[in-house]
Design a protein around this nucleic acid. Sequence first.
DNA 1: AAGGGAGGTATCCCCTTGGATACCGTGAAC
DNA 2: GTTCACGGTATCCAAGGGGATACCTCCCTT
Lengths: 123, 123
Amino acid sequence: MRTPLTADMFDELCPTPLSPIRVGDKWAGMIIRCLEDGPRRFSELRVPLRDITPKSLTHSLRALEQRGLVSRNEQPRSVEYALTPLGRSLLEPLNAACAWAEEHWDELVDAHEAAYQETRHTA
Amino acid sequence: MRTPLTADMFDELCPTPLSPIRVGDKWAGMIIRCLEDGPRRFSELRVPLRDITPKSLTHSLRALEQRGLVSRNEQPRSVEYALTPLGRSLLEPLNAACAWAEEHWDELVDAHEAAYQETRHTA
DNA sequence: AAGGGAGGTATCCCCTTGGATACCGTGAAC
DNA sequence: GTTCACGGTATCCAAGGGGATACCTCCCTT
């Protein structure tokens, strides 16, 4: 564990974009996933979230802190973010949501494409 | 089943507002719950959602339709909305999310109040 | 003393979300 | 033939989410 976070970990197979279920703001769900294996540093979190601006990351992390899901541990040479026990307990329903999205992936894609076609047809 | 929807069904005990987990937009989760026991009509759905404007309800329902979660059945004298099988399958992770929120209700409230106090103190 | 990395802030700006209010079209029902 | 409920639209508006860019402070290294 504590393997480096990769830049492509949310690229292809992650069901997040098509799933109707969301945790907090745009980034919160992914951040929680990133912290699953242990504490991470600010700059470390920016890697898998690609082009996230520091402002957005700060904002999301503060919101997660306020909800008691993430802790901020400031040390001499770095800042480490980690899941609180409450945040870790959230992994269970979050995983259930992701599993649902993966399980119904085809239907979600079909519905999305059908809606898109209809839009084009109407226009 | 098919008992009338009450105006207060989302008032007190519903964990939605404090839960970090959301389904679609502001109303989607509650709409899905409302359809759990069978099809409902537009005006019927407005009751439990209190002050929802027709515009907002229309918008949310259209979005749920596009995602394939809700079906719209137009009949001579009424329009009925119902869960699709896909929509119904979403109840499982949705219930998991609600159960989580209820289970950690106290912690959620504590975190929320602590954040509020801190805001007041800072200001 | 200067450079550099970590962890942010400060501004600006656009787009979306969602509420308020008002209006509309259709088909019973009176 | 007008009124009424149903199922919406149309328009306007305020607040918030989120990206782009630039800047800053602290501390360590060289």
